[in-house]
Amino acid sequence: MSARKIFQEASEEYVLPGNSACQGCGSTLALRWVLKALGNKTVIVNPASCGCVYVGLYPRTALSVPYIQMAFAAGPAAASGIVGGLDVQGKKDITVVCWAGDGGTADIGVSSLSGSAERNTNYIYFCYDNEAYMNTGTQRSGSTPAGAWTTTTPLGKKESKKDMAFIMAAHRIPYVATSCSSYPIDLYEKTKKAKLIGGMRYIHILVPCPPGWRFDTGLTVKIGRLAVESGMWLLYEVKNGIFYLSPPSRRILESPEKRVPVKEYIKAQGRFRGIDEREIDLLQEMIDKKLEKAAKLDGEPLFF
């Protein structure tokens, strides 16, 4: 699959010009590829997040599929209701999606998300992870990485990022994947794959955010690539409990020369300005260990 082939296969645009996203928004970029993969028979539930804003003001909208705004903690439950309502009417060919931010996923919505996963609800949950409450002006979330500046962690967050993809995999749902808005082919293919599977599917997408991460709006794709090339963000799938590294992450393991020191990723963003050299070395060590483990896990069951 190449980017050109995606455009041939899915020429229709569902995220329309005129949306009110920030310049360089990684989330709208990701949504564009996701909807190209899913097509027009898709219903989106969007709990409170940037997505509530970038679709525009009533009575206008920047999306050409049904898009239901939902209360912060209620996305997965509302999606469960839509799935049930369509099911009872025999409408089987519609894909129900919850499109939520990292706060809505890892913090306020985690109970509802976990409940829907435990019930193996037939929908796809996408977490677009910009690693803080960006819609309200960059406050820390459970998904903010250690060391990152936010308005509520002015000296950098002390605690680690919550690993939502592993938490979801621990629900033994049929499909879990991670992706990044800088990897359209990876995201497109994983979304297409998820569409064909029944039951609960979870895709966690890292989406760089220029105003929140403090980098130039022209660098969104570049920053996402550095996240993956440094190993800071790992792309993988957990299919029926088996862990598989995805090609962009496997590449840096197989060809270490393609690996980028995490320092490049850190230094490219203003939010990590409080991290000193010693801390960067520690982070590098942690990433080295993580990649070593990931290589061993590749093709193996994730849990007992």
Partner: peptide, 24 residues
Amino acid sequence: AVFVPVESEHSAMAACIGASLTGV
């Protein structure tokens, strides 16, 4: 009928909202 045994009342009402949005 479809019965969805949710994990909270907040979700029970959210699920009813979702289903009602489809017209059932």
